[in-house]
């Protein structure tokens, strides 16, 4: 029961929890941010598994670009649908509810 084993356990549990939370989140913005953090955590997993090439790509793509794409789509479709009276500001970054 060395520390490496413990790190692996915590990492795996964290990845699973983040994935679950990002799917059951009722707030789209929260779901996207949780997914980006999932990408960051998975990057650490790749490093633990000795796949440094994959880790670099995941850090740049999985945690960076995918998040940018998701947030752009979210902003285009969902962020400004709800607040009709507030349509000028576009500051409703809290997101809207899914259900």
């Amino acid at each position: 029961m060395d520390s490496g084993f413990l790190i692996d356990l915590v990492l795996a549990a964290g990845v699973l929890i983040l994935a679950w939370l990002s799917l059951v989140a009722t707030n789209l913005f929260k779901a996207i941010v949780l997914f980006i953090s999932l990408g960051l955590l998975v990057t650490v997993v790749w490093v633990r598994l000795g796949a440094v090439d994959v880790a670099i790509a995941e850090a740049a793509i999985g945690a960076g670009l995918t998040g940018a794409l998701l947030l752009a789509a979210w902003r285009r479709l969902w962020s400004q649908r709800r607040p009709v009276r507030d349509a000028s500001g576009g500051d409703d970054s809290g997101g809207d509810n899914v259900s």
């Binding site: 989140a25 996207i32 997914f35 998701l70």
Partner: peptide, 8 residues
Amino acid sequence: PHILQKIL
């Protein structure tokens, strides 16, 4: 149910 979360 939500499509964006299906993509996720």
